[in-house]
Structures are given as C-alpha cells and as structure tokens.
C-alpha cells in the first residue's frame, strides 16, 4: 500500500470534495424548485396539463443519468444554432453541463416523489379546507403542500443520497470532483486501491452525514407522529 501518494494529494481530494458539495447542493436546490411546479402539473386531472410534466418525469427516471449528461455535454454541440448562440459558453463547459443534467435528473425524481405524496393527501383534509371556505390556491398552500412535503421527506432523503452518488459521474467528463481527483491520483501513481478507496471514504462520510441530517429533520417534521413521551 502506498499512502504517501494519497497524503501528498490530500489537498486535491479536498478541492474535489468542495466541487462535489457545490454540484450536489446547487443541483438539489434547482431540482427542488423545478420539481414543485412539475409535481403540481403532473397531479392535474386534465390530460393536456399533465401530459408534458409526466413525460418529463418518465424520461428522466427511465434513462441513465450518464446518458442524460452525455446528451447535454456531447450532444448539444451538434446543433449549429446553439453553437453560435450566446448560450454556447454555458454548454461548452463540462461543469455547467453536469449541473444542468443533475438538476433536471433530480427534478424528475423529486417531482415523482412529490406527486405520489400529493396523491396520498387524505380526502377529509381537503374536504375540511373546502368547508372552511378556502380557495383552491389556499388549500394547496396551507394543506396539500405542507403535508405532502412531510410525507415525502423519507423518500427525498434517499433521493439526496442517490444524487450524491450520481454526482461521481461528473468525474467522467473531466470535472475534478471527488471521483475526478481519485482518477487523477490513480493515473499519476497507478494506485487504484488507495486512490479510489480514499474517495470512497470521503463519500461514506458524506453519506452518513446526510443520513444523520435527515434523521434529525424527520425527528422535527414528523414530531406529531412520534409516540408520546411518558
């Protein structure tokens, strides 16, 4: 085992860690913002309204993240019009392409989680809100969404961890995230075990932190579901 190469390159790993954290947090934030309107439209009863958001969800959940990322990074360059437009500086950069792919992917998964949670809203709650004279916008804001967010929390925790793991794909398109850092160390010193296991340990720590964080969140948000302390 050759630990020297790892210790000398620890700064590179920490740079990678920072890129991974950036990509994952931004993708999750953008994805969450996109997913709420998509989930609301997808739970509509009108087939014209729900067709497009459901196709979006179906596409992003049904195809590999790697293919989605390649489509944006390698694929979009095929279009002359895009190459000459003002958007090209964004689609030329691996970093932004990865961020766009991750955001859309997590938006698809999160929208499906939210759609499921919205569909499970107890009918009585909506009936009660209507009886109180709330408008349908108020019902969504006060009743449906808050309880749907609560129900979606455990599944969303899993999605966040999947996103963290999926973000390793960024290393494939030359971004120096945690996985990219391990790849560089491996190609310089040929220490596959040490380099990738080090990255793996970083990911393990991140995963456990997230699991702990979501446990805390569930403790708070699901307080009303806990058995009463005696």
């Amino acid at each position: 085992m050759d630990y020297e190469a790892i210790i000398n390159n620890l700064p590179l790993y920490f740079e990678g860690l920072w890129v991974t954290i950036q990509l994952v947090t931004m993708a999750l934030a953008i994805g969450l913002c996109l997913s709420v309107p998509i989930a609301l439209l997808a739970s509509s009863k009108n087939i014209l309204v729900k067709a497009l958001p459901q196709a979006f969800i179906y596409f992003f959940r049904g195809t590999p993240l790697l293919v989605q990322m390649f489509l944006i990074y390698y694929g979009f360059g095929q279009f002359e019009a895009l190459r000459e437009s003002f958007l090209w500086p964004i689609f030329r950069e691996a970093y932004w392409c990865a961020l766009i792919a991750f955001s859309l992917n997590t938006a698809g998964y999160t929208a499906e989680i939210l759609r499921g949670a919205i569909a499970q809203t107890p009918f009585g709650e909506i009936e009660a809100a209507k009886a109180c004279g709330m408008s349908s916008a108020t019902i969504y804001r006060r009743i449906v969404l808050p309880s749907a967010f609560r129900r979606a929390l455990p599944a969303y925790g899993n999605e966040v961890i999947f996103m963290l793991h999926g973000s390793a794909l960024a290393g494939v398109i030359t971004i120096v995230d945690l996985f990219g850092a391990a790849r560089i160390v491996n190609s310089r010193y040929f220490v596959p075990f040490e380099s990738f296991i080090t990255a793996g340990l970083f990911y393990l720590v991140l995963t456990f932190t997230l699991v702990w964080l979501f446990k805390r969140l569930e403790h708070r948000w699901h307080a009303y579901l806990r058995p009463r302390e005696t």
Binding site: S167, G171, R183, P192, F193
Partner: peptide, 21 residues
C-alpha cells in the same frame, strides 16, 4: 452499509482496477 454508502462508479473502479492488481 459500505455498498450503500459509496457511489457505484467508485466501487466499479475499485473492483475493476484493484481486482486486476
């Protein structure tokens, strides 16, 4: 626990390159 904590791509590299060694 280990499998669910580490990205599949990283595991694949460990097994592919490491297994080779």
């Amino acid at each position: 626990t280990i499998i669910r904590g580490i990205p599949d791509l990283v595991l694949m590299m460990i097994i592919f390159f490491g297994g080779q060694l």
